[in-house]
Structures are given as structure tokens and as C-alpha cells.
Write a protein that binds this DNA or RNA. Structure first.
Lengths: 371, 371
DNA sequence: TCTGCTATTGCAATCGATTGCAGTATCGCC
DNA sequence: GGCGATACTGCAATCGATTGCAATAGCAGA
């Protein structure tokens, strides 16, 4: 922001766009878009009643085949589109799912974590494949509580909540409702709603086992364990240590936001002090890991020889930093699919399911000591 | 995808979520959410007519202050939310803007470029601040043409089209309509619709001047100039070279998608051949630049001493790779704001404006030869 | 020719909120 | 006490599509 102050001088360049008079209404004979076609117009043109027209357009077999085709053809000719609002009102459905990206109240920043965005993309595709539109909301101006805003107002038929889910009272509240929703995140235990997420604990275990295999003995965990998912990753780390007979005080946990910057700062402030004993870092996200990597490299600490580093997520950049980042890959593809299919199932009154998706360790340069 | 085949063995773990009987309908006395409150219910409870209730809720001053407060209070007590569908139908507005991320038909991949996603976030915030909902659509299943799908069906009141805009016939077609829409991208000349974007040519110029200042003389441009924005960046590069009296054949342009992978591959395949003469690379995006950086480092080419590198966008990671990436920063904040405000203005019948936003060169390690 | 079906189509109510216009108090003032 | 103005409220139409139920026509079988 302040970065941009120097630009005040530039100002911004504004052009007046040349506009066509907008009366390019096709050939003179046809007057296509006079006002806006309604079903009634189509019915009239086809010489049938509105009800017949409606049924014909929806391909209701009770209507004579010939009639159906005729109506459909006329509708197509006039590029008639059913008014979604009217339909929604009548049918009491919106064919829309609201996706809510909830994030920290403190770091009032816009959705940023690359992983979440990747997941978001998958969800978008998946929803559209099922014929649903997607209403996106970053719960910044969230005085309005989501549930009622989207559901009671009939803006959406269901909710998908993603975003690093610190225990959110609003979600708990939703669970008391019969609102259909699913959450991306980590299972904390006995939630009353379906949670889809990676097997974070297993991920933490895999990453840590790998670090231990590489000979690391003094570890740091970078991440905020107040978040369910992160807590699970941390627990997985402890699991692995315990299994390997490593003393629990050999693992230090440093709280850290989901940004490269946070990873960088935390590393500078707390990690260097523990050198040279410290020899392994497990970061709760790739962004954090990349920040840590930067800090380490700046201080000429060899990665992975001196300190081995593993991240989480496998964002696109991970393979392209230097050294390339070892990480625990989350399967966004099946994650997005699961979220959508569970929600849809739930909307049809089925029993809600939680799913925990398998993860996979990708060993790259940042942690592989023996080639 | 194939990455995941090995996981078939894992399968996925599924839990049955324990569900409360859902009849936790508050205290026995009050029965809140029997069916679903409607305006009529509120009116009845308040002892006024529907029309009065409606006006009261909208704070229409024609209604007695006391009446208004009473109705509002009752509505609040019962957590009544106006049915958006009904309102939209009646008022013929949806208070919704559709954001369309159009992308290459060939690289059928989901929205991925970090820059676009950042922009998307800003737009989301901005829209919600103006009281609009945001309908997000990745134009993958785009047999349905956007314009009619969203506008004619009254799903949205306006369109924002972002995504690396290769000349898209669909956009041109939209311009012939009176559909309100704005586009993020580069000006190609005489568009008939408002385009908001960075001053890409200036950006290209700045980046190139900087490279030349650092002593580079043989340059490569990595990017697909069929995209307006990229073409402008390339033109800016040529501008700078010409101004500096550099022969135009000293600049080679290599077509490249918007991914780190593409940047990596192109660098491997075509850049190495031109070493050691080649001494500067200007990449059309930071992702591309990071791919190129990876390839260079793998071949032990010193950055910036041997080859200096500049990207474009200033995505979050740019500052945290090693060496940190010099880049041309686009101002997503004002970009998003401009898109929204122009669209809203246009929807109110105002003359559409195009805007070109100032950019800023950030010199970091990847190009700064003298410290 | 009459009855009973079946195949089609249309009538009219409905979804829930908004709003132009008309109706009813209430009040001031002559 | 009477009249017009002012301040509120309510009636009823409307937005555009969907759908239960009734209506009509056509046809076969008795």
C-alpha cells in the first residue's frame, strides 16, 4: 500500500471508450431483444399456453413431441433464457452454492494461501459440472452471519466453508441448524457436521519420519496449532518422534501465520538461536516453508545438509524454488470433488459423511541428503 | 493426477458423523424456525399490512418512526431475512455480479495464476463492500455463452471478465449488446468496451531499461504475445531497446504459457543454446520467471551476474525465492477497485471508461548486479 | 351411438416481496 | 363545526415461471 504512494505522481490514465450507439439491433426486420423475452412471449409465438410452453422447454414427456420441438425451436431462435429468479422463487431452490472463505480476524488479509485457491478452483469446476452456480464470499464483512445470509434469504441452497478453520463458533452454531453445509478442515473429534480434509496427522507423520530418516534429530515445527489442521500435522510429527524414540523436547513448535513472510520472520527470530543443533524444519504450509528457506539461505545455512526442510500442500511453486521443496501433497482434486458430492448428498437428505483424504510425501531437494 | 494412482491402495477413510436429532429447536416455549418466516408473518405479528412491513424494513420514511422500529424489532427477534429471490424478481435486479475467469482453451487447467487470484480477492472484497454478491465462474464448461447465461437469465446484473485475454470473440460479441461489463486486460486499441489494466507497456519499458542499466545486452522475452497484455509488455521492451540504441535482433521472444513449468522448459530448451552471450531475461509473469530461475540455477548459471532476471506481477512468493525476484508490480488493489467502480458506474448508465494503472519496478536480487 | 380411456393442453393459484394509488385518520385553522 | 392538508396505512397488481387439477378431444370397444 505505502508501496504505492510514490505513484501518486503518476496518477492514472483514463480513456473514454468509444461506444457504438448501441442500437445495432440486428437486421431491421427482426427485432430481437426489444425488451426481454418472457415465457409468455414464447408461448404466444408458439400458439400455446404458458404452461405448455414451460413444460415443453423442460422437455416434459406429457407434452406432445411435436409441440415440444416447436416451442424449443422458437425459444432458441429468440435466444430465450428462462428467468432464473422467477424459477427459483417458484421452485424454492436457487441452484447455487455459497463458498465461504473464512479467515483470521486478525490478519485481515484477503484470501491468499495458494493452496486454498487451488482448492477453490476445483470446487468451482465441480459445482458447474453439477449444474450449480457458485457464490463466493470472503467472510470479511462478516457481521452478517453466513448461515442466515445465504440460506434464509434463499441466495444459496448450501454452504461450503473453507479456510484455515480455527475453531469457529459460527460453524458450531450452524451445526445446530438444518442448514446443509460441509467444511474443509481437520477433524477435531466429535464434530456435528461433515468435515472433508486431508489426513493431516498422517502427513505430519510422513514428513517427520522422512526428516528423521535423513538423520535429523532436533526439529522445529512452524505453524499455528490453534488451527485444527495444523494441530493434526503437529500431532503427527509428535507421533513419529515418539515412534522413533526421540525425546519430545527435541521438537519445538513455533506459532506462525500462513504466509511466507511469517515463516521468514519466525525463522530469523527463533530458529537461528538454536543452531547448530537444530537440523530439521517441518513447516505447516509451503508458503511458510518458502519463507523459512529464504531466511536460511540468507544466512548461508546449507539446505538440506545443515537443515532439512519439509513443507505441506505442494503448491505449484514448490517444485520451482531452489532447492526444490519437499512437501506433503494434498489432493485438491479429490478434495474438491468430495466437498461437492457430500454437500449435494446432504442436500438430498442423506446422512452426512466426513472424509479424510490420503496424502503423499514428495521428497525433493530441500530434505534429501543422500542423493 | 497420475501422481495419485499410487494412492489407490490407501483408499479414503470415511466417518459417519454423529448427528443430533436436529430438533434442538431452542426452548420449548419459542418455536423459532417452524417453516420459514415470510414478510407476511412479520406483518401479522406486528399487526400491520405486508406493505407497511415491507416499507418499515426498508426504513421508508413515509412509515411512522414508531411503526418502523416495531416491525424491525420483531423481524430481528425472529431472525427474519428478506427472501432475496422474491425481491430480485420484483425489483428486476439481482444485486449480483458475475466474475468470469476466462482462460485458454488449450491449457484446460483451472484458474491458477497467483496474480489473477489475488485480483479476484480484491474484487470479492470490493463487491461485498458495495453490497453486491459475487458469482464466480471459470469459463470451462463454456458452451453456454456468458452474456446470456448470466444476464438474460437475470442471475447477475453485470459482468467482470478477467483472465489472460487472448482476443476473445465472445467478448467482442458482448460489446454489441447493452450488457454491462468490464474487462481486465491490455488495451489493444479501439475496443468498444471498458478495459481496466496495468500500463503493461510502461512496465515492459521499465523492466528492460533496468536490465540494460545493469549492463545486459542480449535479452530474451518469455511470454505469449498473442495475449494483449503480454504483447504490450513485449512492445515496452522493444521501446526501451530502441531508445537505448540496441539492435532489435538482440531481443528474442519465446512463447510461453503462464506457468513456472513452461518457463522452466522454455529456458532449458531455448535459452541455454544462446549462452554465454545471453545476459538478461524478462519474463511475462513471476511464475514464468521462477521457472526460468530454476532452470538457470540447475545449470549453475549465476543470477544476476551471468544472467539477470526480471518478472512481472509481484506475486507473494517473488520476494521469497532465492535470489529474490525483481519484478514489475501490478497494483491489484486499485485494479480491483477500478473494475468494480467502473462496472457499477456503467450499470447506472454512465459513459464507460478504460483505465490504465501505473506500475512500479521492484529491483531485487535477481537483477541487481551492483550492490 | 354411447361409454370409458388416453393423450394433450390450458386455467389459475402460487412462490414472497415491492409499490402505485387509494383510503382513513388526525390536526390545524378559519 | 367544517374543510382541506398532512401523515400513515392498506389494497391489490405485479415480477416470470411452475404445477395440480380440470377440461377437451380423439379413439376404441361394446
Amino acid at each position: 500500500m505505502s508501496d504505492w504512494q510514490s505513484l501518486a505522481a503518476y496518477g492514472k490514465v483514463v480513456f473514454y471508450t468509444q461506444v457504438t450507439p448501441n442500437r445495432r439491433n440486428g437486421s431491421p426486420a427482426r427485432m430481437n431483444d426489444k425488451k426481454m423475452m418472457t415465457l409468455a412471449d414464447i408461448a404466444k409465438l408458439a400458439g400455446v399456453s404458458e404452461s405448455t410452453a414451460s413444460r415443453a422447454l423442460r422437455n416434459n414427456p406429457v407434452i406432445n413431441q411435436a409441440t415440444r420441438e416447436k416451442v424449443q425451436q422458437i425459444a432458441a431462435e429468440h435466444q430465450f433464457k428462462v428467468n432464473a429468479t422467477a424459477r427459483n422463487l417458484r421452485t424454492q431452490k436457487s441452484y447455487t452454492i455459497a463458498v465461504i472463505i473464512a479467515f483470521d480476524a486478525k490478519t485481515q488479509q484477503t484470501v491468499s494461501d495458494p493452496f486454498l485457491l487451488e482448492l477453490l478452483g476445483v470446487i468451482a469446476d465441480e459445482l458447474s459440472q453439477h449444474g450449480y452456480d457458485m457464490l463466493l464470499s470472503t467472510s470479511k464483512s462478516d457481521d452478517k452471519d453466513w448461515g442466515s445470509y445465504f440460506l434464509d434469504s434463499k441466495r444459496a441452497d448450501g454452504l461450503i466453508i473453507i479456510g484455515q478453520g480455527e475453531h469457529d463458533p459460527r460453524v458450531e452454531a450452524l451445526a445446530q441448524t438444518q442448514v446443509p453445509f460441509v467444511v474443509w478442515g481437520g477433524r477435531s473429534g466429535a464434530e456435528l457436521y461433515p468435515i472433508i480434509g486431508s489426513d493431516n496427522r498422517q502427513g505430519g507423520r510422513l514428513a517427520t519420519e522422512h526428516l528423521l530418516n535423513q538423520g535429523c534429530r532436533q526439529l522445529v515445527f512452524l505453524g499455528d496449532i490453534r488451527h485444527n489442521e495444523i494441530e493434526q500435522r503437529h500431532l503427527g510429527m509428535l507421533d513419529a518422534c515418539q515412534a522413533a524414540g526421540i525425546a519430545s523436547d527435541a521438537v519445538q513448535q513455533l506459532t506462525c501465520d500462513f504466509t511466507a513472510q511469517a515463516g521468514y520472520l519466525q525463522t530469523q527470530q527463533h530458529v537461528f538461536a538454536r543452531l547448530p543443533e537444530l537440523d530439521g524444519i517441518f513447516a505447516a504450509s509451503d508458503a511458510i516453508a518458502m519463507g523459512a528457506m529464504k531466511a536460511l539461505l540468507e544466512h548461508d545455512i546449507a539446505i538440506p545438509q545443515q537443515v532439512a526442510l519439509v513443507g505441506f500442500d505442494d503448491i505449484a511453486m514448490s517444485a520451482y524454488c531452489t532447492p526444490s521443496l519437499s512437501t506433503v501433497k494434498q489432493n485438491t482434486q479429490s478434495g474438491g470433488k468430495a466437498l461437492v458430492s457430500q454437500l449435494l448428498a446432504r442436500m438430498q437428505g442423506q446422512q452426512p459423511l466426513s472424509e479424510q483424504l490420503a496424502v503423499k510425501l514428495l521428497c525433493r531437494q530441500s530434505s534429501l541428503r543422500r542423493l
